[in-house]
Computed example of a mutant assay.
Amino acid sequence: MSFPLVHGGSYVGRMVVGRRRPGEDLTSAQQALLQDLSRQVAVAVSSVLLHRALRRSRELLVMAREEERRRLRRDLHDGLGPALAGLALGVDAAGNLMSTDPRAAKALLRDLKYETLGCVGEVRRIAEDLRPPALDDLGLLPALAAFADRLSTRDSSLHVALRAPDSLPELPAAVEVAAYRIATEALTNVARHAHARSCVLGLRVAENLTVEISDDGVGLVTTTSAGGLGLASMVERATELGGECLVLPGHSGGTVVVAHLPMRAP
């Protein structure tokens, strides 16, 4: 005989009870007792499952953090490190040339200046990968409004409208970044692939922060953009926060991207 284990409306397992002797039937009192016991077991099983899920979530967060550190270390070690070392050698070489060939030294310093500006650009790229500077400079809503305006300005055939509340509650940094990245990637896909005339970026606040991008273009677009953040990345950004991101056909054509992000980061 078995009893389903249900806790909080969710099925968490089954309690199997064996007979003490073959052919022995349980009395109604015994069945009622086991039914009560199954509810207590369901609580315990649910607690174990939640603990496992929490431990797995923590493991994934640690893995993601370490992967980000590894990527950052690689960018610094393989990119900026050699470039800065080359600049130091170039400065030494220019110093050695200064007394014997000032013209060559000046030309070398000019080249070193351009290399230095390249390093500055690399630092900015790394910083932007970590967190879009527009979020700190403007805030989420103004940053998205500015991005939508830039898209409309670059392509006169596409009109992007922003529908959002006047202000948003304070959001965790991870939720802000995910909302911005998902919205800008979806808008970029619309501009590059959808051949749409109009697009609406909407933000709604309830239990979750909902980001919705809809267009009147040719239909579902799954092409990954040149920037490297495509459909899979949008889904991953939402999922790692405990939310979800869906790409659906529009009711009257086009594509709808909907992301539900928790108001509190895990």
Rank of each mutant, 00 (worst) to 15 (best):
S46P: 02
L117P: 02
G219P: 00
L187K: 04
G81Y: 06
V160G: 04
T188G: 01
R154M: 10
R264E: 09
S156A: 14
L5E: 08
T239H: 13
K113A: 08
R71G: 09
L248G: 07
S10N: 12
D166T: 11
L231N: 07
D129W: 15
L54M: 08
H193A: 07
P102A: 08
G254I: 03
V120R: 11
A206H: 11
R65D: 10
I213W: 10
R124P: 00
R197N: 06
R71E: 14
S46A: 13
S47E: 15
L84E: 00
G8Q: 05
E212F: 03
N189G: 02
R56F: 08
R103K: 14
A145Y: 11
A107T: 12
Q40K: 04
D137G: 11
M234C: 13
G81E: 01
L87D: 00
P172K: 09
E185D: 12
S252N: 15
L112R: 03
D136Q: 14
L246E: 15
R14V: 02
A206F: 12
I182V: 15
S252Q: 15
A145E: 15
A88T: 01
L140W: 02
G243F: 06
A29M: 04
V258N: 03
E244L: 14
T255M: 15
H77S: 11
E244A: 14
I182E: 09
G8A: 02
A226H: 15
L201E: 00
V17N: 01
V91T: 08
L241A: 01
R52Y: 07
G243R: 07
L130S: 07
R124C: 03
G121L: 00
A183I: 12
P133V: 06
A104K: 03
H251L: 15
D215G: 10
N208G: 06
A238D: 01
G95E: 12
R21K: 10
R52T: 03
C119T: 04
R14K: 05
N189K: 03
S99V: 10
A83G: 10
L72R: 13
G230D: 13
V256M: 08
G228F: 13
L246T: 15
D155Q: 13
L97C: 01
A32H: 13
V211Y: 01
V45F: 01
I182S: 08
M15Q: 07
T188Y: 00
G121D: 02
L209K: 03
G227Y: 09
A83M: 13
L140P: 04
